[in-house]
């Protein structure tokens, strides 16, 4: 077993009396793909928001590579190596496809106002590198997002391709931990099978550790090393897909209590 990359202890958050997350314990090891499942409103997205710094927890600690992430702004979290996608795809719709990916490299590049103004060789070199990296990242998804598409605004893309572009944008921040929020939602079976394949490659070829929220159990089964089920802000079960999917509490959370057991 390799090193812990993310370690979350006793994490809680309350929104005006509502416990969105209660005493959550969670960890991810380097190179793992962890699937997070749970019924709607279980606190999965809040959980992601908290890791990525968009929501500050009420108590508990988040350690990323041994360093506390509490109180960091989202951009600092991204800078430290955690990147995410959004459940309701949030692209920069009026920027071109390649710009969407280029802008994500902001925190990995550093040329400032003066080198931009004087168009220094260093600046031009960096711009070329940003562009090359962006094309490389986009090329990961086949030919869909490159070629003539590069200079088109993101708003012309189909839903599936928007999801792909969002993953590409997250990849471009060069994270070590990638948080995918329902990556295959809205895709047809063929597309989601392909993306499942790609998620595997994200680990094997790009070396990302991945935490993925997903409702599509086929995807979760195919790609996750470990599955965590959340309900009402608490961990219901974790373990291999089979263990979790056969856990009676999980089944109950998803399907409700079987009739004969209701008292």
């Amino acid at each position: 077993m390799s090193e812990r990359i993310l370690d979350i202890n006793n994490l809680s958050v309350t929104f005006g009396g509502l416990h969105a997350l209660k005493d959550l314990n969670f960890h991810v090891d380097e190179g793992e793909i962890v699937g997070v499942i749970g019924p709607n409103g279980a606190g999965k997205t809040t959980f992601f928001n908290m890791i990525s710094g968009m929501v500050t927890p009420s108590s508990g600690e988040i350690l990323f590579e041994g360093e506390s992430m509490i109180g960091l702004d989202p951009n600092q979290v991204t800078q430290r190596g955690i990147s995410r996608t959004f459940q309701n795809v949030r692209l920069f719709a009026n920027m071109t496809i390649v710009e969407n990916v280029m802008v994500a490299q902001h925190c990995r590049t550093k040329k400032g106002i003066f080198s931009s103004l004087f168009n220094t060789p260093g600046f031009r070199k960096e711009e070329a590198e940003i562009r090359a990296h962006a094309e490389k990242v986009l090329g990961f998804f086949g030919t869909r997002l490159i070629g003539y598409r590069l200079e088109q605004p993101a708003s012309v893309l189909s839903y599936a391709n928007r999801r792909r572009l969002e993953i590409a944008r997250a990849m471009a921040t060069s994270p070590r931990l990638l948080l995918l929020d329902e990556p295959v939602a809205g895709m047809n079976p063929k597309e989601s099978a392909e993306l499942t394949d790609l998620i595997g490659k994200l680990r094997s070829e790009w070396g990302f550790t991945i935490v993925m929220i997903e409702h599509d159990m086929n995807v979760v089964r195919d790609v996750s090393d470990r599955v965590v089920c959340l309900d009402h802000g608490e961990t219901l079960a974790q373990g291999s897909f089979e263990e979790v999917s056969n856990n009676p509490e999980v089944i109950e959370a998803y399907l409700g209590r079987p009739l004969e057991k209701r008292a």
Partner: peptide, 14 residues
């Protein structure tokens, strides 16, 4: 969806 309830944590910027 993403409620950006940002409570300032311990770390402060300039």
């Amino acid at each position: 969806m993403t409620a950006a309830v940002k409570v300032k944590g311990a770390r402060r910027t300039g």
